[in-house]
Design a binder for these strands. Structure first.
Lengths: 334, 334
DNA sequence: CCCCCATGATCAGCCATCTGC
DNA sequence: TGCAGATGGCTGATCATGGGG
């Protein structure tokens, strides 16, 4: 913005050709032929002047900005979010566009940013405030919810927790879920899938406890109270599926606080495979995601929605994976 | 992009006024006066048509895009990064612009995205590949390194670790740092500050061990080996300052693996206050950051660089804070 | 007369702002 | 005072044209 960046006209002047020649050559039109040396010269000058077409002018002319916007209510500090952004970045790049991430916060509504950024599509991973999705719809920006391909991953992960515990011989399971609105889509998918998986395996219906709020001290006491109830009596819960690694850590702390040993007295499974999961004591058995399939699905979806390509294939094939560590153990036959 | 979004001309036609009138009214120019009913009518029609100015055309006309780009080599999965983005988002919004985050990855270079996005400034938190900063410079985009205001925070954090341990009576300290290039700026700031703090307090020079690579199994064994060496002999290290919470967790695991109890035999301090830090066993004493001052500093800096405002004040005043938990203990006098 | 290489002119896209009535 | 017309910002695309061989 300072040094008066070069325009196509500057390149033309410096190369001693006309602006249309520059345009023909740089955009690789086959309507016109040019001598090899002219092509080379123009290319060289463009590189020399570090010419980049003005994004705004280009967008104006082409009628599309080339920007896909990932709007998130603040940026989650999670390993999975980082992986997902990486996958989505590549997916968007594969359609020859750029993925930008925007943090929606009080005081930074989508509507404000739409003055500066006209995305061709809005990606939604975590539920946004009503107001903001409404703004996108009003601006006739297609809103693509990443939830749907991810939902299946979440279902697979929830089922996997149950299947893994069942394979270890556990029958009476508990489920630690969260009632936080922000992550509601994930929690319901995981919970439903876990219940179905238990039923399919002929297990008794798992006991569900829901925690509100962040994974802090009060969550630990709440979980401890529930855990005490579930682990006594003639048919105690022997294993717990947790919403994610953070709450699995909460569960471990809660178990410890009421004198239960993990995994001797109770097995605990998380979800996410956060970097710290392998460093907790005991190290955490968890479910790891792979987003490459989600990325591919998103790429096809974008091509379909933005470029009128063939409908996206429905297969996002990669299955989550159990990372077995110390927080689960095989249950001895009784 | 679908339903042919409304333009200013559409609003003008529907309101029965000229295009320039619409422009004046919607941008609240004080160069012109209009009758209250005209203003009201134009506003109503604009709202009715859900009119949003075309970002590209606006950018072209104004000569500035209103976009500030935070380029990061992939998106870090850290609580601190999330907090920083939140602070920067607000800072950029305060200058009436939008902050977009772009993940730089193999296959997604900055140069590619500059076709789609012409940021007015590029924010750099983590060191980017040479190629990408070069691209920004070539496009004469001011590159603002967030490192400098953050450096002071890191120095304060590093010093705080040492001061806290000294206050607990520790004299022989170890420092666990990392040699990863990606985080080099942070590690050097923290290390230097810790050393200075130790000297200022009259402590012997701390023993430094550097780990390469991620916080995994091999890091644990490497740290364990170093720890065994440092904790034997007549004057053993009794406390360890770690690069961050992840490596503090590594240190705890390493200590445990060679039969040391935390905090009885060795005290361990992290940095970051990751959500899981309070759930580890033992819970982790750590340093928490506050980025509100950094945000304010960035806001002033942007105003200075982009709007020619007064030079940014150099005060980014908020001090990091010790979160005392179980991994440190007061050293009994010997 | 056609091929190769290139030019100049023009337009559309949407907006903010200056000048003029 | 209250409003309208014209202009420019940069790109990508196309057309009509034309000199030289």
């Amino acid at each position: 913005m300072n040094g008066r960046r070069a325009t196509a006209a500057d390149v033309a002047a410096a190369a001693g050709v006309s602006r249309s020649t520059v345009s023909y050559i740089l955009n690789g039109s086959d309507q016109q032929t040019f001598s090899p040396q002219t092509v080379a010269r123009v290319r060289a000058v463009a590189a020399d002047l570090a010419y980049t077409p003005h994004a705004a002018a280009r967008a104006l002319r082409k009628g599309q900005s080339g920007i896909v916007l990932l709007a998130v209510p603040d940026v989650p500090a999670s390993a999975n979010f980082a992986k997902l952004v990486a996958a989505l970045t590549d997916a968007v790049r594969a359609t020859n566009r750029s993925l930008a991430t925007l943090a929606i916060r009080p005081g930074n509504r989508l509507l404000d940013s739409l003055r500066d950024i006209s995305p061709q599509a809005l990606l939604e991973v975590l539920p946004l405030p009503e107001e903001d999705t409404a703004a996108a719809v009003a601006a006739s920006i297609p809103v693509i919810s990443v939830a749907s391909p991810i939902e299946r991953l979440d279902e697979a992960a929830g089922a996997l927790q149950v299947q893994h515990l069942a394979a270890l011989g556990h029958r009476r399971l508990g489920i630690l879920t969260v009632s936080d609105l922000q992550v509601r889509p994930f929690s319901t998918s995981r919970l439903a899938a876990a219940r179905t998986a238990a039923a399919d395996l002929g297990l008794p219906a798992p006991d569900v406890m829901a925690v509100a709020g962040p994974p802090d001290e009060s969550a630990i006491t709440a979980v401890a109270r529930a855990l005490r109830r579930l682990t006594k009596g003639p048919d105690p819960v022997t294993a717990l599926c947790c919403f994610n690694d953070l709450f699995a850590a909460v569960a471990v702390a809660a178990a410890r606080s009421i004198g239960l040993d993990v995994p001797r007295d109770i097995s605990i499974v998380g979800i996410d495979d956060e970097p710290l999961a392998g460093l907790l004591g005991p190290t955490l058995t968890t479910i790891r995601y792979d987003y490459t399939g989600t990325g591919a699905h998103m790429r096809d979806l974008l091509r379909h929605v933005l470029d009128g390509g063939p409908a996206a294939t429905e297969t996002s094939s990669d299955a989550p994976q159990v990372i077995e560590r110390e927080s689960t153990r095989r249950l001895d036959h009784e």
